[in-house]
Write a protein that binds this DNA or RNA. Structure first.
Length: 118
DNA sequence: GTTGTGACGACTT
DNA sequence: AAAGTCGCCACAA
């Protein structure tokens, strides 16, 4: 079984595990998939993601809450729309962090943290 | 084989 | 705040 395929499967699995309305950064997805420092590669994996079952790719955002697609682009609008449909607000291409912390440098604010109840 | 590019990220100017 | 730089690495040309 080739490593590339299993790595990709791990990425999809991690992304599929993100609950509705929650987000993870590319870097965090990479770490959880056992691919530290390969944030860029996550994009490759998501592009290759199966359409059906489908992975919630819109829950994966940049490290600063930025939607990675160019503003105004089709995919950018779709991602923003999907996130808003799950209750998150997006302002100027940026996903507004969850209320727990307003500090823009606090990654935890928009990173989903698995809690004891999960 | 080399080069440029990109749905990234951490750092430094 | 904005722009560079560098590390990372799959892919296409």
């Amino acid at each position: 079984m080739d490593e590339r395929a299993s790595a990709m499967a791990r990425v999809w699995q991690v992304v599929r595990a993100i609950p509705r309305g929650q987000t993870l950064s590319y870097g965090e997805v990479a770490r959880r998939a056992g691919l530290p420092r390969r944030a860029r590669w996550i994009a490759v994996a998501l592009k290759a993601a199966p359409a059906r079952p489908g992975v919630p790719w819109h829950r994966v955002i940049g490290a600063n809450g930025r939607i990675a697609f160019p503003q105004g682009s089709r995919p950018h609008r779709e991602q923003a729309q999907r996130l808003r449909a799950e209750g998150r607000s997006v302002e100027k291409g940026r996903v507004v962090p969850l209320a727990r912390s307003a500090r823009p440098d606090d990654l935890d604010a928009w990173l989903w943290k698995p809690g004891p109840s999960d």
